[in-house]
Design a protein around this nucleic acid. Structure first.
Lengths: 137, 137
DNA sequence: CTTGACCCTGTAGTTGCTACAGGGTGCATA
DNA sequence: TATGCACCCTGTAGCAACTACAGGGTCAAG
């Protein structure tokens, strides 16, 4: 499989694939006579793992740890659970923040009376933090 | 006011203040004899506006537009409302994505039976996208 | 034998900061 | 007067996680 095929097969940008190789997430594949990268099924599986993890919001370093575990099936797997659990907590925190943000924005918006910026509620609210309820960050 | 004071007054990192000046979000302040930046109340207000906007998740370019409107009170303010509304939509979309993500993660996690990585549900699920319900991204 | 799609390396850009290195300023204290 | 210390200056490089070239090489079809 050439890199373009792998790209299409996994929905990953070609540049991204080469980037993953450079940072050591993907192993260096064999090369053809013309110096083209040549991938097999194992590469596709591994890249899919990486992409899926990234879509779920794991950082590259977390993906590295998860891959490391996947590569060593004889190890304890608690680490994977720990990484995922910590990540879940972060996602939940982020959701909370965004909900606060959404409420703040909703409160600010929609009061445009089509007038001049001088009377704009949005601009006014942005300048004056004390008008806020929630503590965004 | 010296930069350190402005930093404390607005809860903004000194490097960040200088960065905002460099990219033109804050005007260049007057300088003292010793070449120290010297800020006034107007600078503090403007920086507070910027920080507040950033905390609400507006991009630098959006902040630039909003500042531009704030600087021209004779203009129509609909643009501000438009920017904020678009941003609200983005925030709502992001919340939706994260909720999907959270559900996905919850489903994956917590099935660790303390065994070996070979049997790990987390790693298994990461490798196999077809186990997912939602369409994260 | 040339066209076009594909691939290669290497480097620089993106966003929004943050972190130095290597120096200067200004005020209090010994 | 010296010196210590907190603070400030410029300029550049780093972070995450890619993305986007520039400037070239490969390969199959027509």
């Amino acid at each position: 499989m050439k890199i373009g095929e792998l790209s299409r097969a996994t929905g990953t940008n070609i540049e991204t694939i080469r980037y993953y190789e450079r940072i050591g997430l993907l192993p260096e594949p064999a090369r053809t006579a013309g110096n083209y990268r040549s991938y097999g099924e194992a590469h596709r599986t591994r890249l899919a793992f990486v992409r899926h993890s990234r879509e779920l919001g794991f950082t590259i370093e977390e993906v590295r740890s998860l891959l490391d575990l996947a590569d060593h099936p004889e190890r304890e797997c608690c680490e994977a659970d720990r990484i995922a659990t910590r990540h879940l907590a972060q996602v939940e925190e982020k959701i909370g923040q965004l909900v606060t943000l959404r409420d703040e924005l909703s409160r600010i918006i929609g009061r445009c009376r089509g007038g001049l910026a001088a009377d704009c509620r949005v601009i006014e609210a942005l300048g004056d933090h004390t008008m806020c309820n929630g503590d965004h960050e």
